[in-house]
Nucleic acid binder design. Structure first.
Lengths: 150, 150
DNA sequence: AATGAAAACCCTTGCTG
DNA sequence: CAGCAAGGGTTTTCATT
């Protein structure tokens, strides 16, 4: 189900190229991978079908659209409340990402909000479901790095 | 410098469309935004120039390329060691993302590794720079959700 | 800023080696 | 998988508003 896909050098070069620029024309990706255009199109199609490439998405800067404050929030919730909490989190546009994790926290999430008042309000709302721990993001020195061949 | 960009309804529709499918043809994006193809291309160009769109990237599933174990790691480091630690983290392909945060932790990072042995080895290496706290990611119920109009 | 139309470029398909 | 060619789409450019 979640098995690793067999990737040769050309597949890795192709993945690196399409991670770097998802809108690059096939011609450019083909040159990067050392493949013909037709072979590149076919490989891309298969990588997507296999789920190696989950999608291609524009990355929008939260700060540029009015959400300059980011935070990482952990929340400890009792098992019976997990589903209700998740439903609430899914409904809140502030939540960029949320992981179900081992340890003291049940969930760790990454949020972006307009200002400290919005953060306070968000925390007030979710505190109903458990105790939270919040770390404000000051900067992001390593940002969503593409996967490379080990 | 990091000022919010003025976005009208059509710009938001365009952003939503290109976040949903970064490789969609201009024709499709244009229909989603209610613009002509030429106007769509021009707006996309300006959104990228302004940094609202930071890039368009293929999203590769770590599990499918041999990195099925993910973890969120916090590390507490004394100020004089921060630069050295960051240099190490940048050099390690395991690190997907790393935030400089407020609170007890200096950095919070998201990593993907091949197995528990690789996680143990990674932690052993960075423990030289400070105390770490590790949460294993069991699942990711909310994954890199695109930004929507508030 | 937006439009429509022309020109340039790109992608797909089918074929051969 | 490469190369080629034909065709149909797509993107870019540009004159116009």
């Amino acid at each position: 189900m979640t098995d690793a896909f067999q990737l040769d050098t050309k597949a890795w070069k192709l993945l690196e190229a399409v991670q770097a620029d998802g809108r690059a024309p096939l011609k450019t990706l083909a040159e990067a991978a050392g493949l013909s255009i037709a072979a590149t199109a076919e490989r891309l199609r298969r990588l997507q079908e296999a789920g190696v490439i989950r999608g291609v998405h524009a990355d929008v800067d939260p700060a540029k659209v009015g959400l300059p404050v980011q935070a990482l929030i952990g929340i400890t919730t009792a098992q019976p409340h997990k589903q209700a909490l998740l439903k609430v989190l899914r409904a809140r546009t502030e939540v960029l990402e949320c992981h179900h994790v081992t340890g003291a926290d049940s969930y760790m999430m990454h949020i972006a909000v307009a200002d400290m008042a919005a953060l306070e309000s968000f925390l007030g709302d979710i505190n109903r479901w458990g105790e939270t721990r919040t770390a404000i993001v000051m900067s992001t020195p390593i940002f969503r790095r593409g996967l490379r061949r080990q």
